[in-house]
Amino acid sequence: MAVPLLEVDDLTVRFRTDAGWMTAVDRVSLAVGEGEALGIVGESGSGKSVTALSILRLHAAATTRMPTGKIHYGGKDLLTLPTREMRQIRGGEIAMIFQDPMSSLNPVLTIADQIGESLRLHQGVDQATARKRAIELLDLVRIPDAARRVDEYPHRLSGGMRQRVMIAIAIACRPKLLIADEPTTALDVTIQAQILDLLRDLQRELGMSVILITHDMGVIAEFARRVMVMYAGRVVETAPVGQMFRRPVHPYTEGLLTAIPKLDVDVRRLPTIAGSIPDPTAVIPGCRYSPRCPQVQESCRRDSPALLPAGPEREARCPPRVAAMAKETVA
């Protein structure tokens, strides 16, 4: 990657809860290149959404302690950017779509109004132009009969169509980066395939970078070029997609890949990962995966492991495995 479009550096986000402060995202760093598709995968509560929302500063300030770290974008730090400038970037150069399109669509505005709002805010176009552009955008996201649909309200649309509308709004201002947080999780599998096809085509046509967040390894394999695996608020592994699937380094990635139910073969008993995802407020010394890790060593419970280089373009937060791999390569 020459110069990344967006670079997140040591992002930490804490929340105040009844049980005290909890760290939702712990020193997360990532980079997205121009036109690149980065996947973020992890189970619920691993910090995927908090990472994404922090990039756009979409957290209610009252509940969050100001996140620490840096988010470099276009020579600026998004974490300290004045609110006015941030508003221009949000929905303009960086856009986001969510799992549940209904919660981000306004039920009392027509689709034309909602797409138009974004165009008027960011590009200052007049109403007639906005409407014309809205129809073009609905066409672009392959909504049939766009000229009629543009005057409908969101509740009249199916889940798949609503997600298309969300995508139309997101790409209205030709963003450089689209952050898609579980965009297909609520959809049926044949509709998910349509939306993934659409996102991939748009990414190519518009030359956008995409950060795709999902808990589904299948979606990652299909869509992303590079992947980042999160566990309990930390990045545990980053790798080019092919390499991660062929040879996971971190024991959690490995466990997750073997525990996925298989579609193409009969398996008598699925391998499992012992225990469960840790309580977010729990203090786990050393490696946060150590209570569940089949390869745990004495040192793992003592020292907090660093994210270590594990080959070209690869990193893993597991010193024992990284050391073992280094030995294998030498031998």
Binding site: I191, G218, A221, E222
Partner: peptide, 21 residues
């Protein structure tokens, strides 16, 4: 339906999605 399911296999190329709803 079977074809549309994303597999955790980066080498697989899924055929174009079935249209309609």
């Amino acid at each position: 339906l079977l074809d549309a399911v994303p597999r955790p296999d980066p080498d697989r190329v899924r055929s174009a999605a079935l249209g309609g709803e």
